[in-house]
Design a protein around this nucleic acid. Structure first.
Length: 567
RNA sequence: GCGCCCGUAGCUCAGCUGGAUAGAGCGUCGGACUUCUAAUCCGUUGGUCGCAGGUUCGAAUCCUGCCGGGCGCGCCA
């Protein structure tokens, strides 16, 4: 809570205690942003809440509350309105102090793992990975900002039966894997798949090859490593283009847990949590039922003796809790895996691997759709390559920059990338992640309304003003114009908004907030001349510009969107 | 069949965890550039919050039941 809000909350609680007794003073002061500008800055609904237990009318309660409330030096005299709302309006000086006060968070001494992006070796990254990566980056930034020690984990799909098949196909073709690119790998996979479906002998060889891989056969591992390397190199390029901080150091693929899988089975077995069913080792947990009402298993070890993805996820949780000592685990994975994570979390709790105080959260997100309302694919039904989408957005941004011709040629490429990529990211982040959304470049790059470019434009305007002013900004002291007050009030809410995002893991709340700031800035920009104003007003407005620019820059930074100084 | 999610203006979405006459953008229509970048701003238009009950001072928000849509439900991840 911002300093201003906590002062108000304390005063309100004090007034309630004084007027009605200590038993009511502990209530949530119900401080909310005013619903309309004419109602002031904040409102409290305490009087309505208290009316019943006190056996008095809400307005009578409100009057007593206001009588007991001393807000001298903080607010205008409080006003009672409607059925019993108490409206509070901060003094301009208090509002100014709130803007001047920097937002800082002390380290929490808590560690969080964020598991996200999760592309698959030998497959092109697609829009699903885009969502996970963009949302995951934003959440990492926000969590770190509010004081968490953040560990990124990219749980790359680099292990499993398909690699036995692929290695076998490589040997069959006598292929030099290192010479392939990601597209070549994907085609190799498809050839292997067809081979596997058509040739029984190849099936046997593939299965044997999986065993060789998992038991560490040098030749098999060498080929597998080359496939991983080709894929990681491609992921590195995409992350760089996307502006994601993910690196090789964050990659902890499924293969990393291979050595720990037997222990997962052994320990579950000792704990009496495993049942043999159809040759597979399964955990049946209360509350999970399948299609016909029969118990739904978590398959920990498959009937062929291999480990499934559940075993890997279980091992990962143990590693994170025991070795990384985390206090919170976050998975940014599409919503279709909701049931899977419920089962994994429940099993870990049952096994005692995931202590009660450590929350494990599935940050679910919806599907990216094409304009036809179906999952986003090419006309041929293939997944759309991420690199091409990013190029497309950047090209459109470039076309707009060329048209406007405000930037030098040499600056346009960099800004076009920032704007194009920013547009895609913002479109992904700005509505509640649980919703599906339609990938429509036209709309994203239209750059009008609630879009990334709108925020960037506001920031660029501020950068220009501050550069032209040519002086270090001072402090906000004068807030007379309604446009100034509106902007200042919004700026004081930055810290609270970021905290909310850290709690709910919903980045769109930050988007909504930043859009409101940018819109308020635009109005201020129209109504209040800065450079041509004089004296203290000019100084104060410059400071307000600097504060707004800082919030926009920090906020976009948290979203993973860069803010050019001109566009 | 069971479970999770979604349903708010013509379209795309918010709605701060129960508060005032439900808000933005796009679109429509009408204004504002010799003035800090008009990728902007100001005004206008537009809703039976899927439907029906319930809870209470008060419901888009919480509960129940329906309707419509998406997704998931044993060896893929």
């Amino acid at each position: 809570m911002s300093a201003v809000l906590s002062v108000l909350a304390t005063k309100l609680s004090g007034a309630v205690t004084a007027a009605f007794g200590a038993q009511y003073g502990v209530l949530d002061p119900e401080l909310r942003a005013a619903t309309k500008p004419e109602f002031g800055h904040f409102q409290t609904n305490l009087a309505l809440r208290l009316a019943k237990s006190l056996g008095q009318s809400p307005r009578a309660v409100a009057e007593q509350l206001v009588d007991a409330l001393d807000l001298t030096g903080v607010c205008e005299p409080p006003a009672i309105a409607g059925p019993g709302f108490v409206n509070l309006t901060l003094l301009p000086s208090v509002l100014a102090a709130g803007v001047n006060e920097p937002v800082t968070f002390a380290p929490r001494g808590e560690r969080v793992v964020v598991d996200y992006s999760q592309p698959n070796v030998a497959k092109q990254m697609h829009v699903g990975h885009l969502r996970s990566t963009v949302i995951g980056d934003a959440l990492c930034n926000v969590l770190r900002y509010v004081g968490y020690d953040v560990i990124r984990q990219n749980h790359v799909g680099d292990w499993g039966t398909q690699f036995g098949m692929m290695v076998e196909q490589v040997l069959f073709e006598g292929l030099a894997v290192g010479a392939l690119d990601i597209e070549g790998l994907q085609q190799l996979y498809q050839r292997a798949r067809r081979h596997f479906d058509a040739d029984g002998t190849f099936v046997e060889l593939s299965r044997a090859r999986v065993v060789l891989l998992q038991s560490g056969d040098p030749e098999t591992l060498a080929i597998w490593r080359q496939m991983v390397e080709v894929s990681l190199a491609e992921f590195d390029r995409i992350y760089a283009q996307l502006g994601s901080p993910l690196t090789r150091a964050d990659v902890v693929g499924e293969s990393a847990y291979n050595d720990r899988l037997p222990a997962v089975v052994d320990d579950l077995m000792s704990a009496g949590l495993l049942t043999e069913s159809g040759g597979a080792l399964c955990a049946f947990l209360p509350g999970f039922a399948g299609r016909d009402g029969s118990p739904l298993p978590v398959i920990v070890r498959k009937s062929d003796g291999g480990f499934g993805y559940s075993a890997t996820d279980l091992a990962a949780i143990r590693h994170r809790v025991d070795d990384l000592q985390v206090d919170r685990i976050v998975y940014v994975v599409d919503h279709r895996q909701g049931l899977h994570f419920q089962q994994i979390f429940a099993l870990c709790r049952a096994a005692g691997w995931l202590p009660e105080p450590v929350p494990a959260e599935h940050v679910a997100f919806g599907t990216v759709l094409g304009k036809d309302g179906k999952p986003f694919k090419t006309r041929d039904g293939d997944t759309v390559r991420l690199a091409l989408l990013l190029d497309g957005a950047t090209a459109r941004a470039r076309a707009l920059l060329d048209e406007r011709a405000v930037l030098d040629e040499s600056d346009r490429a960099g800004v076009a990338a920032a704007v194009g990529i920013g547009a895609i990211k913002y479109a992904d982040l700005s509505s509640d992640r649980i919703n599906d959304y339609v990938f429509d470049l036209d709309r994203m790059v239209a750059m009008t309304g609630n879009t990334g470019p709108y925020l960037q434009y506001a920031h660029a305007r501020l950068s220009r003003i501050l550069a032209k002013a040519g002086e270090a900004p001072g402090l906000v002291t004068v807030l007379n114009d309604p446009a100034e007050q509106r902007l200042a009030l919004l700026l004081t809410g930055f810290g609270d908004t970021v905290v909310q995002v850290a709690e709910t893991l919903q980045p769109h709340r930050l988007c909504t907030y930043l859009y409101e700031v940018a819109a308020a800035l635009s109005t201020f920009y129209e109504m209040c001349p800065v450079l041509t104003s004089e004296g203290e007003v000019r100084t104060s407005r410059l400071a307000l510009c600097a504060a707004t620019r800082a919030v926009l820059q920090d906020g976009m930074g948290l979203l993973g969107i860069s803010a050019p100084n001109a566009m």
